[in-house]
Amino acid sequence: MSSDHVADHALVREGFWVFGYGSLMWNPGFEFAERHPAVLMDYARSFCMWSIHHRGSPEVPGLVLALDAEPGAACHGLAFRIGPEVAAQALADLRDRELVSSAYLERVVTLRLSDGRDVAALAYVVDPEHVQYTGPLSLERQAEVIAGACGGRGPNCDYLFSTAEHLAELGMEDIELTQLSDMVRRRLKI
């Protein structure tokens, strides 16, 4: 087991929470026992990772969202509780999906649920030392990349649009993602 992975035995035996802040919110890909709006402090959601698999290619990289450490920031998303009966398969599926390259690090973070509880949860955060980490990019540059990239899971713009729309539907609109969506639609004339 890599040092970047959380100990499997407790997760599988007891079940676990996982934080969705991008596509996990609208396409979790696992069975869950509970789902709650949640906030993760000191991290920001941003298009700060090159995608060479799911939403881009090595030749034409796309961008995907990642959690980037930022003191004082608050990232709104969804917390999913995965029960012990499906935990082993869910954990394997999450790792296959999120750890396709070593650009994400699996971490245990503390989430504040909408009902006031604090829970320990898995989260996939960007490794700022990894070659796929972009650092800050202007919205204009993000729009340019997202409008032109496509990967194994489809057009990069679909990922952006779905995430922005689901956040808005959940009452967690991310103004920057909404602005970026508008910029990409104008570029694509849709």
Rank of each mutant, 00 (worst) to 15 (best):
M1R: 06
M1D: 10
S2V: 11
L11E: 01
L11R: 02
E14P: 03
E14Q: 08
G15E: 01
G15S: 01
F16L: 00
Y21M: 07
Y21G: 07
L24Y: 12
M25E: 04
M25A: 07
N27C: 09
N27Y: 13
E31M: 03
F32V: 08
A33Q: 12
E34V: 07
H36E: 09
P37A: 04
M41K: 13
A44P: 04
R45L: 13
R45N: 09
R45V: 12
R45F: 11
R45M: 09
S46E: 12
S46P: 00
C48I: 07
C48W: 14
M49P: 08
M49C: 15
S51I: 03
H53Q: 00
G56H: 08
S57T: 15
V60P: 00
P61W: 02
G62K: 03
L63W: 09
V64G: 00
L65G: 08
A66G: 15
L67A: 02
A69V: 13
A69T: 07
A69Y: 14
A69K: 14
A73K: 08
A74D: 09
A74W: 05
C75H: 01
H76I: 00
G77L: 03
F80H: 04
G83M: 00
P84M: 03
E85Q: 13
V86Y: 02
A87V: 12
A88W: 11
Q89P: 01
Q89V: 14
Q89K: 12
A90I: 11
R97N: 08
R97M: 04
R97F: 08
V100E: 05
V100I: 15
S102F: 07
Y104C: 11
E106V: 09
R107N: 06
V108I: 15
T110P: 05
L111T: 02
R112N: 05
L113H: 00
L113V: 05
G116C: 00
R117K: 10
D118T: 07
D118I: 00
D118E: 15
V119G: 03
V119P: 12
A121S: 14
Y124N: 09
Y124A: 02
D127V: 01
E129C: 03
H130G: 00
V131C: 04
Q132V: 00
Q132A: 09
Y133N: 06
T134K: 01
G135A: 03
G135H: 06
G135W: 08
P136D: 13
L137C: 11
S138E: 12
S138D: 06
S138C: 05
R141V: 14
R141H: 10
E144W: 13
E144S: 10
A149R: 07
C150R: 15
C150M: 10
G151F: 02
G154M: 10
P155N: 05
P155K: 13
N156L: 02
Y159V: 09
L160G: 08
S162K: 15
E165D: 14
E165T: 08
E169D: 11
G171Q: 05
D174T: 03
D174W: 07
D174E: 15
E176C: 05
L177D: 03
L180T: 10
L180P: 14
S181W: 06
S181A: 13
R185D: 10
L188W: 04
I190E: 14
